[in-house]
């Protein structure tokens, strides 16, 4: 019941941006009343993300150490008042590396997800809308990539491209293009059958018009949810690549790289070098997952697992 009324609201609002904003606002305030828990999950996600984004924008507010400063303190000391999360094997402050490392992981994850979305969404729209042989070929390619373990592909790309922030972003982005493609194509196919699209076709609307005005606005709600969940996934893929030792040059502070560094000293009981960076990866991923889950309940209660 909710699902249909919500869908209609968003659909009806596509003609004016102000109306769309008003409808969304109504939807959210209704959600705050109706889905209490989902609402709090959403809020928690936003708070976590906002905190870490602030950290990336104003790192100096959070720590006065530089992440590459080897004289920040004694080497490999457990957490203390001077170094909240201890120091690493080179005498660098672990907390300062976390603060500055947030920029890398968040930047790469968001950029990669954006890139995949920007390739996958138009491809899915056009492919699903046009059909025919081209659709079959693209679908086959996308399905092949989708069914293959994404990380292995990312590893292959990252290794071939060599270290670099842009390179790792590309490697992560490749993995997620099929996610958007499949999602958008599937939705396009089903919306194409809807009466109002058929009606638009019947009165002779041009194909790009139908695509932009009728189909795209209906796909976007789901895409927003998947985008958020996708960033969570991309965060873990980025961390995995740099943990393996692929992707980033040595100078850039990065949580995954710090973890693989910490791994070497684990057998001697240096717990703080692995605990904190991993915890941060989890919290950041959790933030985007909560945002996505909350949004999915509110925007589109019937969204399945993608």
């Amino acid at each position: 019941m909710n699902a249909t009324s919500g869908g209609r609201e968003i659909r009806a609002a596509k003609y004016s941006p102000a109306g769309a904003v008003a409808a969304l606002f109504r939807r959210f305030s209704e959600a705050a009343r109706r889905y209490r828990i989902e609402w709090w999950i959403l809020v928690a996600g936003v708070v976590v993300i906002a905190a870490i984004v602030t950290m990336t924008l104003f790192p100096h507010l959070f720590t006065h150490f530089r992440p590459e400063d080897m004289n920040a303190g004694p080497q490999m000391k457990p957490p203390s008042a001077a170094h909240l999360m201890g120091t690493d094997n080179l005498g660098r402050d672990v907390w300062s590396r976390i603060v500055y490392g947030a920029q890398t992981i968040l930047g790469v994850a968001i950029a990669a997800s954006l890139a995949s979305a920007l390739i996958g969404i138009p491809l899915g729209l056009v492919s699903g809308f046009s059909g025919g042989f081209g659709d079959k070929v693209i679908s086959l390619i996308m399905d092949s990539i989708y069914s293959f373990p994404g990380l292995i592909l990312a590893i292959a790309f990252a290794a071939m491209l060599g270290p670099g922030v842009i390179n790792i972003t590309v490697a992560v982005a490749v993995v997620y293009v099929p996610t958007y493609f499949r999602l958008v194509r599937g939705q396009t196919l089903s919306i194409k059958q809807e009466l109002y699209v058929e009606a638009a076709n019947a009165i002779g609307a041009r194909r790009p018009t139908v695509l932009a005005k009728y189909i795209f606005p209906n796909v976007i709600a789901t895409v927003v949810v998947v985008f958020s969940l996708n960033i969570a996934d991309a965060i873990m893929t980025e961390a995995a690549l740099s943990y393996i030792g692929l992707g980033l040059p040595a100078g850039i502070p990065d949580w995954g790289m710090d973890l693989s560094m910490g791994k070497k000293f684990l057998p001697s009981g240096v717990w703080w070098m692995i605990t904190y960076p991993g915890l941060m990866i989890m919290i950041l991923a959790l933030g985007f997952t909560m945002l996505g889950e909350g949004l999915s309940e509110i925007l589109n209660p019937r969204l399945q697992e993608y």
């Binding site: 969570a232 873990m236 961390a239 995995a240 943990y243 973890l259 910490g262 791994k263 684990l266 057998p267 009981g269 717990w271 692995i274 605990t275 991993g278 990866i281 989890m282 991923a285 959790l286 997952t289 909560m290 889950e293």
Partner: peptide, 23 residues
């Protein structure tokens, strides 16, 4: 379920190593 879903596999490995292998 949601927490575990967001734990990177390699970090889980490191934590288990630390707790059940070292400590």
């Amino acid at each position: 379920a949601n927490i575990v879903y967001c734990i990177p596999v390699f970090w889980m490995g490191l934590i288990l190593q630390m707790v059940f292998g070292v400590l």
